[in-house]
Nucleic acid binder design. Structure first.
Lengths: 360, 360
DNA sequence: TCTCAGCGTTAGATCGTTCCAAAAACAGTA
DNA sequence: TACTGTTTTTGGAACGATCTAACGCTGAGA
């Protein structure tokens, strides 16, 4: 019998467990066992049930399963409007990876509109109260984020994309090692012959930004290169960044590592204003590998986050947590990778011409 | 009694309809009526039930509701990795708007990984077979997209973001009037004094691209401006676009309307290569108002899609379709808006200097 | 011979809600 | 008072799956 002729939508309601059981000549529970713990059935019975399931194109009703098992197999993800414009594509790729990983594990991602910074956590409360989700994936974790503590207190499984920047760590998380990324950027620049490498970061106090600054500093120290006065700050805005980076350029930096592609773009603008060429005169490396980076000219070298891996790991940790609430927390730091483009050629700084003044 | 003390998670299982009924001194059915058809209750009874619901912080179980009503109140959305890099933020904003609108209507968005161009439509089949979703929102509709026909044949409610480009129209959709956008762009350029306005589009045959070309052509004709030889084509890639636009610039175009921000960026690059200034020498207008557009320098004027409105309307149409499967199809064309930035100054083309040759 | 554990299977209850039809309460008329 | 008709309320049966406890059967050990 072909699938199409016995298609559920063709006639009547959906195919139920009981219908399959009748056809296979067993009880409904046996069909359930065939699907959930096939080891309990005699091989020939199993085969008979399997055939019936297949012939009737039976699929268990999610609603009934959810009611009975008290588990919806749904994972909540609160969507916020992307704060920085360049961050949107990052979240887009992450969401896709997350959805794919969840699907493969028999779960799905449920979106809910999370008003940014809603202190009442009303959305979470609602989803939980109605048993709509089994757990949450958090992203865009801020410094004093109340969500982790709130969820942990109620014993709700969750995993964060982004570590906790406060001292007290709560729950599982997956994060990208920003320091590793900027460290690698410096390493690459040094290998290309750069010595005067500045850092264009966000204002201190943001966990992510400070982390990225740390990697630059660490690598500079390792190579015995000075860092004092070679770090400037700006909010994530092209104009502001363009202004902020000027002191670095004035002091003769041959390379700039930026905490975001947006900041790197400010660097582009500052260089253009003084008729310097990005890449040839000054190397620039950004962070996030946003779509903008690849379409700029010259292409912006950037530190790319392994978003597919982050999505996969988030799902893995969350499922592990749901399976065992008392397991010790797991925290994962993934390594980003440096994407080299024309803004950062291998040739290094222009060796001829008197080196301009640098430093105090 | 405060909410916190009677919180469901505090002790025992969840608060059920029966528990509320016992407290209010009515039957479970009456509580259900109080929530679903309050008009049937005597005002004082209603008030009593409402108070009990409130005091116990009761929320109906979605699983049980879904099982009984055969409706999950979930809307499926297949996430594909964004094809063009610059398109990602567009989908991000759309998804947020969609989620918000769905939430407000008491529904939620369920993501599922849709392998791009999967002809088996396996994901859809699975979601439907298990009654996981009540309907679908489609996006990224291609020319010979099989999804609409497939869904329509089975009577599944759906709405497309993007019209159908084939002759046969199926189902409801919401789309952005691309021709209106490029028409408005030309209109703006003409008002600023431009006459030699070229169009940098995608290769013919893509519905979206041809639509955007049509608006340019329409506006040019209206102003009795020639279009022959003033339209060039390129795939959505900066390098390719940069090469493709050269003939237009060689012929002395003072303005270029592009079918995407990516193409517009190719135009930026071509102009930079010949030391011409974007905005001053040649005006450029892109399409999509991607984040990249706003952070470029000079800022790229672009046609912005009303994504929030599209999301809202998608949900509205979908709910209407779910309420009445036989209603006549509704199709909505929303107007994009022109975002003016420095790439397109009001002053128009430089009047001095001999006009370079233009045309065959 | 009797007991008992192990095996694959099954009957019956259960999850929390809504639908249906019938019962109860109420109001208005004869 | 009895009768009719209209609210308002309620018991019982689904919805479709899974869980628990127990079924009959076989074979090993006492």
């Amino acid at each position: 019998m072909s699938r199409s002729t016995s298609s559920p939508s063709a006639r009547g309601g959906p195919v139920t467990l009981a219908m399959v059981a009748r056809r296979a000549g067993v009880s409904p529970q046996t069909v359930s066992n065939a699907l959930n713990s096939p080891g309990r059935l005699r091989p020939e019975t199993l085969e008979r049930v399997r055939r019936a399931v297949d012939e009737m194109d039976y699929r268990p009703s999610r609603a009934a399963q959810a009611l009975r098992t008290r588990s919806s197999r749904l994972i909540g993800y609160g969507v916020q409007p992307a704060p920085a414009a360049t961050a949107a594509p990052v979240m887009d790729r992450f969401l896709h990876a997350l959805s794919q990983a969840a699907d493969e594990a028999g779960h799905r991602i449920l979106l809910f509109a999370a008003p940014p910074g809603d202190p009442t956590l009303h959305g979470f409360e609602d989803l939980l109260g109605r048993h709509e989700v089994d757990g949450f994936v958090l992203s865009g974790t801020a410094l004093h984020d109340p969500r982790q503590a709130w969820l942990a207190k109620r014993g709700v499984p969750f995993v964060g994309f982004g570590r906790m920047w406060s001292k007290r760590q709560i729950g599982d998380w997956v994060d990208v090692d920003g320091a590793f990324g900027t460290d690698a950027a410096v390493e690459h620049l040094v290998a290309a012959g750069h010595r005067r490498i500045g850092f264009l970061g966000w204002p201190r106090g943001s966990g992510v930004g400070d982390d990225r600054a740390r990697g630059w500093q660490r690598a500079m120290r390792r190579h015995a290169l000075p860092t004092r006065g070679r770090r400037v700050e700006s909010v994530d805005d092209v104009e502001a960044a363009s202004g902020a980076v000027k002191p670095l350029l004035d002091a003769g930096a041959t390379a700039v590592v930026a905490a975001s592609d947006m900041l790197a773009l400010g660097c582009y603008q500052a260089l253009r204003e003084r008729d310097a060429a990005v890449g040839r005169d000054v190397a620039v490396i950004g962070f996030d590998d946003s779509p903008t980076a690849s379409i700029l000219s010259p292409g912006l070298a950037s530190v790319a986050q392994p978003l597919e891996a982050v999505g996969r790991e988030c799902v893995r940790l969350l499922l592990a947590r749901m399976a065992d609430a008392d397991a010790p927390p797991e925290r994962l730091l993934l390594e980003p990778s440096l994407v080299i483009r024309d803004s950062c050629p291998d040739t290094g700084p222009d060796p001829h011409g008197p080196p301009p003044p640098y430093g105090a």
